[in-house]
Amino acid sequence: MMNADRRMRLWRLVAEHAHGRQVAVEDVCAAVRSAVGVDRIAVAVQLAATPWETLYASDQIALELRELAMTVGEGPGLDPLANGPTLVADLTAAECLARWPMFAPAAVDAGVRAVFAFPLQVGAVRLGVMDLYHGTPGELQRRRLADALLLADTACALLLDAARPGGSEVAGRWPARAGTEHPEVHQATGMITVQLGVTAAVALIRLRAYAYAHDRRLHDVAGDVVARRLRFDPEPEGAADERGG
C-alpha cells in the first residue's frame, strides 16, 4: 500500500528526530519542517475547559504569532466553525485581510506569507491545532500536503496516547492512526462515552490504551465493542471487562 510506505518513511523521520528518546510532538514538528519544507511551526492544544496553550513553537516568531492569534482571537486554525484545515497561500490577499484584520498584517510584518493550519481532531475530539508558517507565498504541493496531513494525524495520535493513564510509551512504537478509515473505531468511541460517562476524547484514549495493553489492533478491539462483545465499565481502574460474545 502506498499509504503504508508514506507512513513508514515519515515515522522513521520522526523517530530520527527523537534520537532514541520517547517520540514526542516536538519530533513530529521537526519532521514536518523537513518533510513539508516550511520555515516555522507551532502546535497549540486546548484541553477541556482550559485556555489554548502553546505546546511547541519552532522559534520566537512562531511562538509570537501563535500567541497573537490566541490573544486577538483570530487567525487560521482559530475559527471554531472550521471543521477542516485552513490553507492560506498568501496572507496579503484581500480576503485574508478582511478575514483576519489583526492577525494577517502582523504575520506579514513578521515575514510570514503563507499559513497552513491543521486541526488536531478526530470527529468531535478536538485536541488543538498545528500551524505551519512559510516566508514565501504559495500552495502546498500535493505530496507535501499529504505528508502534512499524515504528520498532523500522528501528532494527534501522540497526544491521545500520551494522555493515557499510567501508560509509558513502548519505544519506537508506531501509534495507531487517529483519523482511521475504520468506522467501528469512531462508533466504539461514541459507545464508550455512554458506558463510562466520559468525553469523546477520554473514550478514545481509553479505547486506544486497551488495544495497546492487549497488543491488539485498534479496529479489532473497536469491532468487539460495536458487536457488544466488549464493554468498558467505569469501575476498578477503568479496566475494560471482557464479556463472552
Partner: peptide, 10 residues
Amino acid sequence: IEQAKGVLAE
C-alpha cells in the same frame, strides 16, 4: 456522525 451513531446505539 460515526461517533454520534455510537452514542445513540449505546
